[in-house]
Computed example of a mutant assay.
Amino acid sequence: MILYLHGFRSSPRSFKARVVHQALADAGRAGELICPQLPASPKEAMALALLLAERHAPDNLAIIGSSLGGFYATWLAERLDVPAVLLNPSVNPLKNLEHHVGVTTAWHSDEAFEFRREFIDELAALRVEKITKPQRYYLLAATGDEVLDYRDMVAHYAGAKQHVIEGSDHAISEFPQYVDDVLAFCASRVQ
Rank of each mutant, 00 (worst) to 15 (best):
L140C: 13
R151E: 12
S14R: 12
L148K: 03
G7T: 01
L140H: 03
V20P: 00
S11P: 11
G65N: 03
K43E: 12
A17K: 05
A53E: 01
D26G: 09
D181T: 01
E44W: 08
V190R: 01
D181G: 10
L48P: 01
V91A: 04
E118R: 14
I64L: 11
Q177G: 04
A112D: 15
E32T: 13
E32L: 06
P36M: 06
F175W: 02
A84M: 03
Y138M: 08
G159E: 14
H163N: 06
I63Q: 10
F71N: 09
Y150V: 13
E114M: 03
S188F: 08
L123M: 14
M1G: 07
L97F: 10
V182F: 02
P134W: 09
R29G: 12
C186Q: 06
D180H: 13
H100N: 13
A47W: 09
R13F: 05
R189N: 14
M153C: 15
A62I: 08
F115S: 04
S67R: 03
Q22H: 07
L50N: 13
H108R: 12
H163F: 10
Q22I: 07
P58F: 15
E129F: 00
R18V: 04
P134F: 11
K43P: 06
L48R: 09
Y157N: 07
F175K: 14
K95A: 12
A84S: 01
L33F: 07
E122H: 10
A45M: 09
R79N: 15
L87S: 12
I165P: 00
L61N: 00
A23Q: 14
A125C: 04
L61Y: 13
R117T: 13
H99V: 11
E146Y: 11
L5S: 03
H163I: 00
G144C: 09
G7H: 06
A23L: 04
Q37V: 02
A17R: 07
F185N: 02
H21V: 05
V82F: 02
R136V: 02
E118D: 14
V82D: 05
S188K: 11
L24Q: 12
C35G: 08
R151D: 14
A73Q: 05
L38R: 07
E118L: 09
T74V: 08
S109A: 06
P36T: 04
K130G: 01
Y137L: 08
G144A: 01
G28N: 13
G102R: 00
L68P: 04
H100Y: 15
E146N: 07
Q162Y: 10
D121M: 08
A45C: 09
P83H: 10
T143V: 05
D180K: 12
A187S: 10
Y157R: 00
A17V: 00
F175S: 03
L97R: 10
E129V: 09
S41P: 13
